[in-house]
């Protein structure tokens, strides 16, 4: 669930308020959005992806809120890691960032075949699966 909005990084653009699909965030009086309906958070990381200031951190557990220490987190370099992974940061949003994407299908099938082969080895007499 969304864990923290870093006021010192937030530029008050409200992109996250708009982008959150489940209406977790409200605009804040001081410009920093407030987490108003945490129970509706689906831990989809989309607010983080849409925050150009890397001011949001979504903790990974979708079952319950997690406490995080903002200072440790800010120092860890983890802020913005999702955007960097997606290459949605300004520096690296050039075309070509999806060059490996075609491998998804073949890798998925390869994984499924590995599982099927292992099962066959374990059950030599059984009909093919």
């Amino acid at each position: 669930m969304i864990a923290h909005i870093f006021a010192d990084r937030c530029i008050g653009c409200e992109a996250c308020v708009a982008a959150c699909p489940t209406h977790v965030l409200d605009p804040g009086a001081d410009g920093v959005p407030v987490i108003a309906r945490l129970n509706q958070c689906q831990t989809c990381f989309m607010c983080e992806l849409y925050c150009e200031a890397d001011a949001i951190y979504v903790a990974s557990d979708q079952r319950h809120p997690e406490w995080i220490d903002p200072d440790t987190l800010a120092a860890s370099g983890e802020l913005g890691s999702l955007r960097r992974g997606y290459r949605w940061t300004r520096e690296n949003s050039q075309p070509g960032s999806l060059d490996q994407f075609w491998r998804l299908g073949p890798l998925l099938r390869e994984g499924a075949e590995i599982a099927a082969r292992r099962y066959r080895d374990r059950h030599p007499g059984q009909p093919d699966v």
Binding site: F45, L82, F101
Partner: peptide
Amino acid sequence: DIQPASLT
């Protein structure tokens, strides 16, 4: 490179 959000 394929699915960054699967690692997060």
